[in-house]
Amino acid sequence: MSGRLEDEYDYLFKIVLIGDSGVGKSNLLSRFTRNEFNLESKSTIGVEFATRSVQTNGKTIKAQIWDTAGQERYRAITSAYYRGAVGALLVYDIAKRSSFENVERWLKELRDHADQNIVIMLVGNKSDLKHLRAVSTDEGTKYAEARHLSFIETSALDATHVEEAFVSILSEIYKLVHKRGLVGGEAGAAGSSKAGGPMYRAGQVETISVTDGAEDGRSSRKRCCG
């Protein structure tokens, strides 16, 4: 609990990891925050939490990432954790069709419980399982396009695009927020909020419209995460 240095950041964004159980959310998190992968990791109970700071756009952004359990039974409780989140990585397993089919339900979950302007990135994980692929890259891309989501395929196992996924959603959030000049002076506010230390509060986020930002950002964003 030392790392006071680590606490020097310009912005702090709360991100949630959601998607079916077993798609690799916890391993994406451990790969990104600790560069670890576990073939046998324990299932997530309730929510777990980790942070990491990254440099983007010349700023230090601290990501506060909440990893949730995937099982239906937990949703009544985990939905409370969407509060204050400004980004969501919605993960499916490219080798498991049902996890892709459930993406729609997770989007509804976000619509019901998260801030309406939350930035969502669709993540097809386990891209290393080429021989078992059940959802093509094309299908993922098209689905994301239709719903105005960014999209990326990752592998927590061999670390492909994991860094890119997190950095690009963080920078996307940064751009949206920066454009509106909403986060000035917010740094360091972590922990002072009842919602559990998210960066900017729902009231402020309300004025940000993701669709408004589409004209300059959408296509390039997809390319950068591709």
Binding site: I45, G46, F49, A80, G191, A195, G196
Partner: peptide
């Protein structure tokens, strides 16, 4: 003051 929700850590203790 820090905004800790007991659910954030004790959910698993119960579950």
């Amino acid at each position: 003051r820090c905004g800790i929700d007991f659910m954030q850590f004790s959910f698993r203790w119960m579950n």
